[in-house]
Nucleic acid binder design. Sequence first.
DNA 1: TTGTATGCGTTATCAG
DNA 2: CTGATAACGCATACAA
Lengths: 349, 349
Amino acid sequence: MKSATLMQVAERAGVSTATVARVLKAKGYVSEEARARVEAAVKAIGYRPNAMARGLRQRRSFTIGHMLDAIIVNPFFVNVAHWAEEEALDHGYKTFLFNHNGLAERERIGIERFIERRVDAVLFTNAVSTENVRLLAAAGIPALQLERSRTPAAPAIRVDNTVGALQAMAHLAGLGHRRIAFIGGDPELIGRGDTAGPTVEDERLAAYGAGLAAAGLAFDPALLRLGKYYSLSESGSGSEGYRHTRALLALPERPSAIFATCDILAAGALQAIYEAGLRVPDDISVIGFDDTLAANLTPQLTTVAQPMEELGRIGFRAVLSAIETGTWPDQPLLPSRLVQRRSTGPAPT
Amino acid sequence: MKSATLMQVAERAGVSTATVARVLKAKGYVSEEARARVEAAVKAIGYRPNAMARGLRQRRSFTIGHMLDAIIVNPFFVNVAHWAEEEALDHGYKTFLFNHNGLAERERIGIERFIERRVDAVLFTNAVSTENVRLLAAAGIPALQLERSRTPAAPAIRVDNTVGALQAMAHLAGLGHRRIAFIGGDPELIGRGDTAGPTVEDERLAAYGAGLAAAGLAFDPALLRLGKYYSLSESGSGSEGYRHTRALLALPERPSAIFATCDILAAGALQAIYEAGLRVPDDISVIGFDDTLAANLTPQLTTVAQPMEELGRIGFRAVLSAIETGTWPDQPLLPSRLVQRRSTGPAPT
DNA sequence: TTGTATGCGTTATCAG
DNA sequence: CTGATAACGCATACAA
């Protein structure tokens, strides 16, 4: 038994479809009596508006597309997608997800799907190719980047990586650490994109340097390990962090603290340290970034939290504004912040 | 600039809309010449079919709903959702996600949204209320449960929990463990649902007992810890496992191995053990369930893997069959299996 | 306060 | 092989 139509409701209530529409949308004048009859009819036959018909007529699908990097490898993406969806729900919207896994070709396919579905806007967490993003502009669909800007072809709500990273460094320095290693994304490897200015990786790396300087610590290139966050093909997604940490522990003078710019990297670091028979934080402290895996790791990880809920919610509200008014609200720089748990402690003496 | 319409393509190609439709759907006779002209026009104006119009006309949205428990707390759900989506993509479908967080009321709202969107079918991972699921039947929408059956109101593709759990127990027993603890979901607390027969929790618990018996080990009630998998309100989602493990370690004669029926529980167990200054697997072995967090934990967790990709893919194909032919294919019982990593080792002597 | 009529962009059914 | 034309279910401009 397929759902009833508005016309059937009208018939049953003995009014016109226009009247039914008026009570359903709660706009326009309707007599109390007609309203009651319509409501009774709606209930009686279990009427539910057909979103496709509505969308076709209104030229609005009440749907947005959310382009993600790789939802099953990094929980960061799940989280922002979740909160964007939650906010969307509050506004009568639904979101479509699509994972490009870092591949421009996949991203293109996803965007084409979004266009066919006539999404009212799309969120990128994150974008891959400027050319692809322009496809949306060409179709008249607003697009917004979340967390990082990879292309000038769409506005972005970015995160202030510096503030949290600086807190992390100050925390470590305050604990007496003098040899602090850094495991992070290589600005060149991660993909700088087409946006001018420092990338997320540049910022985190710069904050490491600034944190060192602020604490009066010298920079030691041996303590700097740059690479990818994870490789999609490898199981044990923390393997990059694991490898870097093994190298760090093999140093003649090993670090007493490691600042990893991703919880996944930190997870691998924790494994390497454990395997070496060292204890966290007694022998070595570890800080991560994102606050995704953190609370599940052993020991619970001190990490720089990203504002995932704000990113999702504010991001959705921003595109909603673009949809409804054609204008973008101010794009705030959302702060990251240090969350202390149990993986950091005083430097060993 | 909004996307062009089929009619505009027709005009530009100098043919009727019917002809355009024929070349687009690759069915019906079209002369080579007409086809070429249409294809050129499509390319020229960047035409993309409007899925809403198509859906309205065909009474099919090429969309399915996927009802999930709580995507941000348990990666298990992300994974099956991801693979179902992936399979859907291969068949021209998109999925809508909705998290009910274990609440029947939320589930009802989600289902209503799905109905309004006119999804062609819905997947439950997992269902909460029979009454809600019946809403779909009333609307003529096929529904399928994945991983576990909570209601007789829809068919289910379930997982064979026994096989993997038995492997886990045999693995532990083979390693010489004689005091094996069990931390699992309480069959009563988790929600038995309305389906007759043993629940997932019953099965895992039974396998524990059977594994003990097979190894000639006595059952010790002190080693049995039943509760919830996690509480949604608590950060550090492994806290349930942490608490149970603390209790276990405080026993006069503590276990040398713990079998936790969820990686999240195992993550908490690992934290408690670490905090107690014990080493895994030297002092105590741990096995989890699901294979979600496993590879990221310290040490990498031996766990009973659930067939998440198969669940998603086979699940989608099953509903597709229901949509297209009105019949359900055979529902296989998908096997779980032990994945050995580094958290299990010989029992200490 | 209410009803009529039209069109949103497709697909499908007919004739031709 | 091709072209009119009529729905699909709803929203809205316009009349009444």
